[in-house]
């Protein structure tokens, strides 16, 4: 019974709560299955959508949809509340892990995944609070459940000190920047996925169910853009900070180590994304796909490279 034990306990409990939150958000989406296309509402007021469907159906149908929308709202709020509880435990888990190790808690893959996802969930809650972005609930809780689930089951390693290469002030700077940029790339990626989902439904004329309740494509695109606009300069900084650190630790500022190369590839993908958004014929869906590719690169660089490719960044088992 020590700090490390309570950290793991908090982390596992948070994972379970995220799973329940995911279920609630899934129920939220499922409850909206009878909602028809109509002017969507970004403010999520049930009355507006119910009223639009009145032209199509009978009063009974209208009542049923109104009841559905009440249920959608109830499940949505439930999911959000559970996510908040999970987030509190998750953050506590990360903090306890740091206290148990006596150093910042991102010295290996388990710690980095849990820290990055903690930043992501806090960022998401802030976005919900400031910008009514509860519509991100399903994809965010999915990512949290899968990510933290993998962390506590597959990546888990017990607390241990750091290898000498990590004894540096850059260990704090480089990795906080990487984790924060990563968290925001994820928010942007999820918004891009929803954008693709919504525009596909619009092109096929099948806008119904929960898609109706997603914001307009312009808003989804704007959220994705802002997340990337926040993360991209930070990612640039992350690479530069890593390179300064590499100069001190390994005696060279750039060595085409797999991790370095994939960080650069990720950077190039997001550079392409930003250019694509300003290029005729590329803005819209193609740009959104680039946003999704970018976040896939981030995860590949982080998980895939650690597990499959040996390089200088593999230092702590997994």
């Amino acid at each position: 019974m020590n700090l490390a034990y309570f950290s793991s306990l908090a982390m596992v409990t948070a994972t379970v709560i995220y799973l329940v939150a995911l279920t609630a958000h899934a129920a939220e989406w499922a409850s909206a299955r009878r909602v028809d296309a109509g002017p969507s509402t970004t403010d999520g007021s049930p009355a507006a959508s119910a009223a639009t469907s009145s032209t199509a159906g009978t009063a009974a149908r209208r009542d049923r949809i109104a009841a559905d929308l009440t249920r959608v709202d109830r499940f949505g709020r439930m999911g959000l509340a559970l996510t908040a509880v999970g987030a509190a435990l998750h953050v506590a888990g990360v903090v306890l892990r740091g206290l148990a190790a006596g150093r910042p808690p991102w010295g290996n893959m388990y710690e980095f995944v849990s820290s990055t996802l903690a930043i992501l969930v806090v960022g998401y809650l802030v976005l919900v609070w400031l910008g009514k972005m509860r519509w991100l609930g399903l994809p965010v809780t999915l990512l949290l459940s899968v990510g933290l689930g993998l962390a506590v089951t597959v990546f888990y390693v017990a607390v241990a000190p750091l290898v000498p290469a990590l004894h540096s002030v850059w260990f704090v700077i480089h990795i906080i920047a990487a984790a924060t940029a990563g968290a925001m790339f994820n928010v942007g990626g999820l918004a891009s996925v929803l954008y693709l989902l919504r525009t596909r439904a619009e092109r096929r004329g099948t806008v119904r169910g929960y898609v109706v309740r997603l914001p307009q494509p312009e808003v989804l695109d704007r959220v994705a853009y802002r997340a990337v606009a926040f993360a991209f300069p930070l990612w640039t900084f992350t690479i530069a900070a890593g390179s300064i650190w590499a100069e001190y630790a390994w005696g060279r500022y750039w060595g085409w180590d797999p991790k370095e190369t994939w960080s650069l590839v990720t950077w190039v993908v997001y550079a392409a994304y930003l250019h694509a958004r300003a290029t005729a014929g590329w803005k819209g869906r193609r740009a959104a796909w680039l946003g999704v590719v970018g976040v896939a690169m981030f995860w590949w660089n982080f998980v895939g490279i650690n597990l499959l490719v040996s390089g200088l960044h593999s230092y702590a088992g997994i």
Binding site: W256, P258, T261, W262, L264, V265, V268, V269, A271, A272, H275, A276, A278, T279, G281, W282, I305, L308, V309, S310, G311
Partner: peptide, 25 residues
């Protein structure tokens, strides 16, 4: 043109991949 810049960025991205597969591959 921006379009060419975009294509070149893609090319750079893809060209960087073979060198980053790690010493085993």
């Amino acid at each position: 043109s921006m379009r060419t810049a975009l294509v070149l960025l893609f090319a750079l991205m893809i060209a960087a991949v073979p060198g980053s597969l790690g010493p085993k591959i």
